[in-house]
Amino acid sequence: MKNIPSIVAVPVIIVLGWGAVAVWMQNGSLKANISTLQSDMAIQEDEHKDAVRQLQELQAESSRSMPRLAQLPLPSGDLQAAKKRGPCVESLEEGADEFVEGMEAFHVSEAVSRKYQTMLEMLQLEGGGEQALLDLLAQRERVLNMVSHGYFTNPLDSEVALLEREEKLSELDDQVGSLLDSEQYDSYELLKDSGFEQYQVQEFDDTLDAGDLLDDDQINRLLVSKLQFKKDYIQAINVANQLIKDGKKNLGFKAFDQAIELYETNYMSAARNELTDTQFERLKEFEENRFSQMLLSLKAPYEDRAFD
């Protein structure tokens, strides 16, 4: 009976020994993980510094080629809201916020430059008028690109947000109008909501071979032509929609056909005078399907409804 305690103690000592080994191994693993994490953070910080440097180089390049746009303001409001941060990541988070702000301002400047290039080239505003205009255009671009859907669970809240957005856009339009004469404002009206058409022209240019790419003048003339004929097209489809609402579906559909045909014919006729033979043939291929899709989209909401 006296030997029982020693017999029991041996396995206990063995278990404790293995436990100590396990703790030691776990501690070593934790140290390795911490070392890896610190290394990853150092790499991320280096990458962030490289990204900031690249942004600064891009902004410097932009200021050399478009000096008037270099002073567009950063987004208003305090984007650096106070929040609890761990001591190891505070500087990284602040730097990331500054980087996002800088990128947002840079992209707004680029968007304003592209969208209003034709108008800006013909402007001769004095004093601070030009910078005031650029500030307003930048504000409008931010408001225009705000996303309202998805942030509200109540559809009514979403509708209110859209109405407020439209009111703000209208207010900015009035302010822009106070800086421009009637001819300049007509150009602004043509360009202010032209994002989709500008995308289409750029998309077409991207399909061309290197030796057939559009020059800046061709891009601007194509865009302006498309926007000018779009105004007549919008008026025509409004008439067609009203015919259908009045119970004249067949007449409305014919009006859709005529509106699309006239839009395509006028645009392609204008484009023929601006493009080489190769460019024009590629444009016909590019636009044919798109105008067909436009016609289908006009008729689709009424296809399964009885108006006759």
Rank of each mutant, 00 (worst) to 15 (best):
L172N: 02
D232G: 01
A161I: 06
K249V: 11
N238P: 07
L283A: 10
A161H: 02
E159F: 08
S269W: 08
K231T: 01
S187E: 13
L169Y: 08
I244P: 00
K192Y: 02
Q218W: 11
D205Q: 10
K192N: 04
D186E: 10
K230M: 05
D157P: 02
S158W: 01
N238L: 09
L243G: 01
A240Y: 04
F253H: 08
Y267Q: 05
L214Q: 09
Q235S: 10
Q228D: 09
T207V: 06
D173G: 03
N273D: 10
L222P: 00
E261I: 02
D186F: 08
A255T: 00
K231S: 02
Y185P: 05
G150C: 01
L172G: 02
K226N: 14
E203R: 07
A240M: 03
D212G: 00
Y151E: 06
S182P: 11
T278E: 15
G195V: 11
F152W: 10
F253D: 05
V176L: 00
G150Y: 01
F196G: 06
M268S: 13
N266F: 07
S178Y: 08
N250E: 15
A236M: 04
S225D: 15
Q279L: 14
N220K: 09
N266C: 04
Y188G: 03
H149G: 14
Q258N: 15
Q198H: 14
G211T: 14
S158Y: 09
K249Y: 13
A255R: 03
V224G: 06
D174F: 02
Q242E: 13
Q228C: 00
D215G: 14
L208M: 08
F229S: 12
Q200G: 11
K284S: 14
S269T: 14
S269P: 05
M268W: 12
N250H: 11
R272M: 00
V201E: 01
Q175L: 13
S158R: 03
D209W: 11
D217H: 13
D232C: 01
F152A: 09
N220Q: 15
Y267I: 11
L227V: 06
D186P: 07
D209P: 03
L190S: 05
L191Y: 15
G177D: 12
F204M: 04
L208H: 03
Q235L: 06
L222D: 00
Y185R: 13
K245S: 09
P155K: 03
Q242P: 05
A210P: 00
S178I: 06
